[in-house]
Amino acid sequence: MITGIVGAVFVLQYFIPHWPFSKMNAWFSDWFSIVAAFAIWLGALNLMKISAQKVVGRKEDWGYALVIIFSFLLIVIPGFAGGQGYREAGTFFSWLYEWAYTPLSSTMFAILAFFVASASYRAFRARNLEASLLLIAAFFVMLGRVPVGDILTGFMPVGWRLSDLASWVMNYPQAAGQRAIMIGIALGLVSTSLRIILGIERSHLGGE
């Protein structure tokens, strides 16, 4: 019932942006922000709970679980103690963000380049026309985005160099495929949302 009412209000306020739907929409949006914060808290606190259980039970890799708890407290304590200016330059929170969180997150994503390269070696074998198209499109886009692409095709007239071909692939055939995917996703989302709002889909509550 809660799901149906809330979902219906969000839909109705789009078509009838007046009282009472406008007011209910404002309330629900605020509640949503607050509940979303608690949902993230739930995840973080659950992580702490599991890590603490590992440490107390001296389970495998309990030392790393201790590091997780320590790192969590290391950033949370100055974050709360610093008041509303916790993010200002010069605070320990911002120091941790700049010198620990940022390097760790960007390196974590950067090493994916190696795994992607290894995966592409296996996936990019031109076995049929479809795989060849995938290979050619990726080749154009990758080489067209770096200076060496234009150096290699420097003898070609402007408009036909690799960077131009990469832009064309991105702007037209890629955009067309992307558009088809986006419309497909939107149709799927609309039907799933309707099923949820109408109570046909209840798996999120543990039902069938």
């Binding site: 993230i40 997780i68 708890i69 320590f70 790192s71 290391l74 929170f93 963000y97 997150s105 974590m108």
Partner: peptide, 12 residues
């Protein structure tokens, strides 16, 4: 460290 700091960052 990354897991702990990320969770703590969003928590705050």
């Amino acid at each position: 460290i990354f897991v702990g700091i990320s969770a703590g960052y969003w928590f705050v």
